[in-house]
Design a protein around this nucleic acid. Structure first.
Length: 247
DNA sequence: AAAAAAATCAACCGCCATTCA
DNA sequence: CTGAATGGCGGTTGATTTTTT
């Protein structure tokens, strides 16, 4: 993951930090603070440049930092703030406890970008409606075919069906067709390359739950699903499937 | 089992704003 | 005012790990 450590032509160490370096930096900052990052490595006994020390402290060593395991609430907040603020990562990170701007930025690019795009695609069905739909469990209908993916998200795996019903707040759409109900968790579902097929009776949902992302929010109206790889699904007959355009 | 592709994420780079001599 | 020093920010990279083929 990290870059291979090396000494540059000025005698400055670069690349991944060793545990020993971490300890030196941590010990120094905890005792003396960081009034001057450029001077710090000299006094802390580090061969790093000040910039590297600052980065290491801010993104990794700083107390109270939280790594990984973003909650659904955090992810939704990031998406919301990004929509309002754009790529102002430090401002966005400041609204989350224990997250560095670098970490938030990485998480955005790795996990949230596509989901946010779908949220935009679904903007004709507002967040308000999404919430109301979830609370009342009434079905809010929207035409998938009306959605225009201006952001260029690759929707190649999604068939267009007659209608879609929002069923909860975590980008879940229940897609209905004449003889088959399918469910997908927006982007996460596509990333997983699975389709969630509704079955009338299913003894267990364990296998599905294991494959869902941590952020997945299970909702009561959909009790029984099983997963199948997309390839399996697409080889099976499907009403109007091949005549319907993709989006 | 092996190779290729994708994902991950720590660290780097260049630029900008502010401070200060 | 000017310019150097500094902290901070956002875009990007790339080594390693994980997943897929």
């Amino acid at each position: 993951m990290a870059r291979t450590p090396f000494i540059d032509k000025n005698g400055i160490k670069r690349g991944a930090w060793s545990e020993d370096e971490d300890n030196k930096l941590r010990a120094y900052v905890e005792n003396f603070g960081h009034p001057n990052w450029r001077q710090l490595p000299k006094y802390a006994g580090l061969m790093r440049c000040g910039k590297s020390c600052r980065l290491r402290w801010m993104n990794y060593l700083r107390p109270g930092l939280q790594k990984g395991n973003y909650s659904l609430e955090e992810e939704e907040l990031i998406i919301k703030l990004h929509k309002e603020l754009g790529n102002r990562w430090s401002t966005i990170a400041a609204n989350l406890t224990g997250r560095s701007d670098n970490d938030v930025k990485n998480h955005w690019h790795a996990h949230l970008k596509k989901r946010a795009r779908l949220t935009n695609i679904n903007s004709s069905t507002s967040t308000k409606q999404l919430t109301e739909s979830s609370q009342s469990q009434s079905e809010q209908s929207c035409k998938l075919s009306e959605h225009n993916d201006q952001a260029g998200y690759d929707m190649k795996e999604l068939p267009i069906s007659a209608s879609a019903h929002l069923v909860d707040t975590s980008c879940l759409l229940e897609v209905s067709s004449s003889d088959l109900s399918k469910l997908y968790n927006g982007i996460d579902w596509i990333e997983e390359d699975h389709i969630f097929r509704s079955l009338e009776q299913l003894s267990s949902i364990n296998s599905l739950e294991e494959q869902l992302p941590d952020s997945f929010c299970w909702t009561s109206p959909i009790d029984n699903f099983q997963t199948e790889p997309l390839d399996n699904i697409w080889t099976q007959p499907f009403d109007n499937f091949w005549t319907q355009p993709f989006f």
